[in-house]
Each structure stands twice: as structure tokens, then as C-alpha cells.
């Protein structure tokens, strides 16, 4: 079995772990997430100030927070655990405002995404003063690559381009782009978790993709691989 397939299976396992995706409907809109989400009751108790419920809730959601932090910042980033911890704080503080329109896991993913984006924006701002972002990425390699077929390398570079956009796009667009491409949420799920209309989400994603296309065209390595004469030129 190839390493790529192994990783895919591992990813699928992670996504289907009970602690992460328990009760998470595959397609939002078809079922009521509040009814399906077994964490909702736990969240209600935690929001009311029950420390035991908060501990249990965090134990179940922390893997998702860590995953998003690693996806946005890169697994080798030194601030991954800090970001996950900050996201955990933010999640507990935001629980009273959680309206149950999406699953709690997706809500937690959104909190982690926003916290991670803030870190990237701060680093991008700092790097503009001191060093280039590419230099920064050399310091914090974005992933530990297994043996590299070129597709994997291409994926890493495309992921790097998306990560850079998260710190340069307007926040609303960056959030949608990140939730879709980084976390892997569908557009109806993003609409539910952000509370924005579906068409607004589509529009933000379209704008984000336009910026991504431009970034890919500016990346000579990516551009060279994709050939440069197909739909990316549009």
C-alpha cells in the first residue's frame, strides 16, 4: 500500500474518530445538527460553568483544535500548542453564543481557524519588517514529507500558497477559504458555522480563489508544473 494511500486512510480515520466527528452529519442541512450533536448537552453544561463538563468537552474537542492549528500553521510550527490552548479558551468563552446551527466540532474548528489566522497575520506583519515569508517557511517547514512524488511537493506548495493567503486576504474571505480548503468543510457547512448566507459564502470563496489563482500564477514552480495554459489562466 502506498504511503499516500496510508496517509489518506489515516486522515479518514482521524476525521471519523468518535471524539472528533461523533454525530457530525455528513451533510448539514439534511439533518438538524442540534439533534444529532451529542456534544450539545455537554456544551450547555460547560457554558453554565460546570468545570467537569468543560474538561470532558475539551478532551473531545482538543484533537480538532490541534488539527486545525497544525493545518493552518504547519505541524512543525512552535506555536501550535499555544494556539490550540488559546482556541480552547476562546471556545469556552464563546459557548454561550453558540446557537447550535452547526455541530460543535465545526464551531470549534472555526474558533481554531480564527485564532490560527491571527497568528499567521501577526507573523506576516512581522515578516514584512524583518524577513520574507518564504524565509519564515524555511525556518518552520510546513510539513514532514514522506518520500516525495512530485504531486506531494506540488500539494505542499499549493498548501503554502493558501496559508499565505490566509494572512493577506480580508478576514471574511480568508476565513471561508481556510474553512473550505484547509479544514475541508463544504459550503453549506461553512454557511452554518459562520452564520452567513450560502450565496455570501460562495461569493467570498470565489474572491478567495481568484486571489489563489493569482498567487499560483506568481509561483513559478507551481506555474511550471501546471503548465500555465489551462483554467488557471482564466
Amino acid at each position: 500500500m502506498s504511503a499516500a494511500r496510508t496517509d489518506q486512510l489515516a486522515t479518514a480515520r482521524v476525521m471519523s474518530e468518535p471524539t472528533l466527528e461523533a454525530g457530525c452529519p455528513r451533510r448539514l442541512g439534511s439533518e438538524d445538527p442540534a439533534v444529532m450533536d451529542p456534544l450539545a448537552e455537554l456544551a450547555r453544561q460547560a457554558a453554565a460553568g460546570d468545570p467537569a463538563a468543560a474538561n470532558t468537552l475539551l478532551t473531545k474537542l482538543a484533537p480538532a483544535l490541534l488539527r486545525v492549528a497544525r493545518q493552518v500553521l504547519g505541524p512543525q510550527h512552535p506555536e501550535v500548542s499555544d494556539v490550540a490552548q488559546e482556541a480552547a479558551c476562546g471556545l469556552l468563552q464563546a459557548l454561550p453564543r453558540f446557537r447550535g446551527e452547526c455541530t460543535l466540532v465545526h464551531f470549534a474548528c472555526r474558533v481554531a481557524m480564527l485564532v490560527s489566522m491571527n497568528v499567521r497575520r501577526r507573523e506576516a506583519s512581522h515578516s514584512r519588517k524583518t524577513e520574507t515569508l518564504s524565509e519564515l517557511q524555511e525556518v518552520y517547514p510546513t510539513s514532514t514529507l514522506p518520500p516525495t512524488p512530485e504531486d506531494r511537493l506540488l500539494g505542499e506548495r499549493a498548501a503554502g500558497a493558501i496559508r499565505q493567503l490566509l494572512s493577506s486576504l480580508p478576514e471574511a474571505q480568508a476565513e471561508v477559504l481556510g474553512l473550505h480548503h484547509v479544514v475541508g468543510l463544504t459550503m453549506p457547512e461553512i454557511a452554518a458555522v459562520t452564520g452567513a448566507p450560502l450565496e455570501t459564502v460562495r461569493s467570498r470563496l470565489r474572491l478567495g480563489r481568484n486571489a489563489l489563482r493569482l498567487r499560483v500564477l506568481e509561483d513559478r514552480r507551481l506555474f511550471e508544473v501546471v503548465g500555465g495554459s489551462d483554467d488557471l489562466d482564466r
Binding site: 486522515t11 484533537p63 493545518q71 510539513s143 506531494r152 499549493a158 498548501a159 499560483v216 488557471l232
Partner: peptide, 16 residues
Amino acid sequence: RLTLLAGEAFDRAGVP
């Protein structure tokens, strides 16, 4: 293709 490959890269990055 890029989206697919980037998604796989993000999944690899998020592995526990």
C-alpha cells in the same frame, strides 16, 4: 488538481 493535492497536504499536516 491543485485543490485536491493541497487538501491532501493539509490532511497530512493535521495528522495526530
